[in-house]
Amino acid sequence: MAIIATKETRLVVQGITGHEGTFHALRNRDYGTNVVAGVTPGRAGQDVEGILVYDSVADAVEHEGANTALVIVPPRFAAEAILEAAEAGVAQIICITEGIPAHDMLEVYHYIRPRGIHLLGPNCPGALSPGIANIGIIPAEIFKPGPIGLMSRSGTLTYQIGGELAAKGLGNSTIIGLGGDPVIGTSFIDALDLFQADDDTEYIVMVGEIGGNEEEKAAEVIAERITKPVVAYIAGFEAPPGKTMGHAGAIISGSAGTAAAKQEALEAKGVRVGTNPTEAAQIMADLVAKH
């Protein structure tokens, strides 16, 4: 059944008439994702290679039964785009946009969370269930179907590890990019619970990086309620404190958020942590071979 990107997905793409929006909406459709509509205010009635454009997400929900929204709009409009999708009754929102102010995301987070709306991102590559559906910008060609759920705060690092797993003949149930911002909708814990409940997922790879303490919190949850084997990789051991390493969320504040602390927390709960992507993929491959 996979998670997030599934056969049941009915996708509306917010920002579909933009350059990136058009490109990725069509790529997602070509992959087999059911893209039912696009939204660009003021462009209702137009179409993007057969995908109807609406003025609002509410219209796309009413006329096309959209149940998932993909947000590819500039950062200063993105928080509002997420809220619009939430208000329109979309249950699942995936936000690719990088550069949304953190205070805006606080507001969004506290609006959607109590309403049970599922947000992935922002500043993430989306979700791909190989062979089923692709929502976002993940290059699907690298991945193939298989039993490993892969979750990561970084896009290209996900591709790196996915590519290494594929080279060893291993595939994925779903690959989800959680996003590189300080406030994101889906945490490692949320994703762990989704993978734990997913029949297609037998193993889990988590790819973390410096900043925040979501990896530490995930370590607790893994020990408490995740029965599927988890292998981890953490990036940023050499990052200096106080410097943002590309992602807005990848920053060591004072002594908090270091890669070493995350590795230690995970290993303390019995999670094996690879020292580089190649080693993490190898650990996972060995695990699969033993089962």
């Binding site: 970084s154 590189g180 940023g236 390493m245 590309g246 992602h247 890669a259």
Partner: peptide, 28 residues
């Protein structure tokens, strides 16, 4: 996105996570 470190191996790549990982691998 650029952050100066104090060594001699220049590093560039695509994606924040991959570049952070590359920095680590150089040190390793």
């Amino acid at each position: 996105a650029y952050v100066k470190l104090d060594g001699d191996v220049g590093i560039l790549g695509n994606g924040a996570g991959l570049v952070m990982s590359t920095v680590d691998v150089i040190a390793q």
